[in-house]
Design a protein around this nucleic acid. Structure first.
Lengths: 150, 150
DNA sequence: CAGGTGGAGTTCCGTAAGGGAACTCCAATC
DNA sequence: GATTGGAGTTCCCTTACGGAACTCCACCTG
C-alpha cells in the first residue's frame, strides 16, 4: 500500500497517527491498559492476525508507547504501557466518551468509569488547561506555532 | 484486506474507530475543521489519492459526521462538520496535545490554540465531568455497563 | 454556439498490507 | 525422549491504497 508517511507532516495529529493510527493499534493499547498484555491473550481477545499483531507491537515498542518485558525465566514477555503510552489513554477515554454518546444506542455504554477522586460513575470533560473553562471545537482560534511549516 | 469490522464490537473505542479509524479520516476532519472543505482542496492539501478521498468522504457522510452541501448553482459541493462531527474535534485536540508534548521536538508545536474564554494560548486538559478533578488513565476503575457483551 | 475551464468525482493498474492457517523455536515439564 | 505452551514466522490469497488518466457537466469566452 506504500502508505503515506504521516510522521513527516508538520501536524501533531498526523504525527500522532503515525504512532497509533494504524488499524488495531488503539485496541491493542486499550487491551494493555485493562490488563490484556501477552501475545496470545491479545491475539485471542482481538481476533487480530498474529502477523499484524507482531508488527503493531514492534512499532508501538519502537515508538516508546509500550515496553516489552520478560515475566518468567522462560522466554515469555508481556507488554506494558510506558508513561508516554499511558498518556495516550486520555485519547482512548475521549473516544469512549464520543462512542458512548453517539454510537452506543439503546443498550447503553458497554463500560462505565468510576472516578477515584469522587467515587462517581463519570466521563471525561475537556477544559482549558489555563482557565479551566470548557474547551471544544468552537472555543479556540488557531495560530501558527514555532514548529509551523514554512 | 477484508479488514475486520470494528463496528460490531461491544467497545466504544472500536465503534469510534469504525467511524474515523481508517487512514486519512482524522486528517480529513482536521482539514474540514480549519476550513479546507472542498474535494480538490482536500486532495491537494493532504496529498491523498482521489479514489481514497472519495471513499472516506462518503463514509464520513454516511456516518453523519460530515454533510455534503452544494455551494453553487453548478454541481459544486463542500463538506461541513455536523454536530456529531464537531464533537469529534475534541478527539483531535487531545491528539494535538499528546503530539505536541511527545513528538514536536525542538521546533515546538506547529499550531497554537487560543482559548476564547480567557484569551490565552492553551491546551486541553481532561477533567471528571462530575467533580471537575483531573481524570487520566490511572484515575478510574472500569465497570461493566448496561451495553456490555454477555 | 463550438471550444475551453474547473470542480468533482471514476476507472484502471501495480504494489503493499491485512487475514488466516500452518510452521518454527525453545525452555520447562511429564 | 516426547509433550506442552507461549511467542512469534512464514506463506499464500485477497483486499485496499497510490497515482495517473479519464469522464461528466454546468458554466465562460470568443
Amino acid at each position: 500500500m506504500q502508505r503515506t508517511n504521516f510522521g513527516e507532516m508538520a501536524c501533531s495529529i498526523a504525527r500522532t497517527l503515525d504512532v497509533i493510527g494504524e488499524p488495531w493499534s488503539p485496541l491493542i493499547l486499550r487491551d494493555v491498559w485493562v490488563g490484556v498484555s501477552r501475545f496470545d491473550q491479545l491475539q485471542a481477545d482481538l481476533g487480530i492476525s498474529r502477523k499484524v499483531l507482531t508488527e503493531r507491537l514492534n512499532h508501538l515498542v519502537d515508538q516508546g508507547v509500550l515496553e516489552r518485558r520478560p515475566y518468567d525465566k522462560r522466554p515469555r514477555y508481556e507488554y506494558r504501557l510506558t508513561e508516554k503510552g499511558a498518556e495516550l489513554v486520555d485519547l482512548l477515554m475521549v473516544m469512549v466518551g464520543w462512542g458512548d454518546k453517539w454510537l452506543a444506542g439503546e443498550a447503553g455504554p458497554p463500560v462505565l468509569y468510576r472516578h477515584h477522586a469522587c467515587g462517581e460513575i463519570s466521563g471525561v470533560d475537556l477544559r482549558c488547561a489555563h482557565c479551566g473553562e470548557p474547551m471544544h471545537a468552537g472555543d479556540v482560534d488557531l495560530l501558527p506555532g514555532p514548529g509551523a511549516a514554512v
